[in-house]
Amino acid sequence: MPQPLDYLKETPSQTAGPYVHIGLAPGAAGFDIYARELGWDIAGPEAPGDRIRVEGLVHDGTGAPVKDVLIEVWQADANGIYPHPEDPRAQDVAKGFRGWGRVITDFDTGLWGFDTVKPGPVKGRNGRMQAPHVSLWIVARGINLGLNTRIYFADEEQANAADPVLNLIEQQHRRATLLARREMRDGKPLYRFDIHLQGDNETVFLDI
């Protein structure tokens, strides 16, 4: 017998279930317990950049909205800097910028949305730039392991065309499932991003 490899195994995932809000957003579950709920302010009031809103629905395979989904977002600031010690430029990140948010739905409609600043491009592997994007992690009842995907911005045509992740998607028509569509509402930019868990327009999900 060879020597044993003594790695541990990653703890298996289990669904977040229908009551995930109790733990991660208790106000939405209907009670007030923490002095500060986390994840409500992604960019802070002072970070420079384009102030945008992103909204959408998550659809199940029958086309119905998933009303109990919870999404976490992670993004760089407008200069493409992550507020994390492993970003070599972290000391220059925008003041007050957290980069992380927790997004819940309207329980009646399933609509979710968040306000932030539009992220800048960030460096990818081997020096290739990645187009501006927001990383998502999606959990809900019926999802056994959190789903990862990315939001790209449809109006970043040139950067998207060169993005190494979008270009990895073999079926070209599926790349559009990661593009948020720019609209205007009350004079402010709004990006619409619908997620399809299954079906003809199934969103491209990532194994990161």
Partner: peptide, 16 residues
């Protein structure tokens, strides 16, 4: 109804 049917796209890690 909530499970993707297409294969996941496997990525090498980036700073994101």
């Amino acid at each position: 109804p909530r499970s993707p049917r297409q294969a996941l796209l496997s990525l090498e890690n980036t700073i994101s």
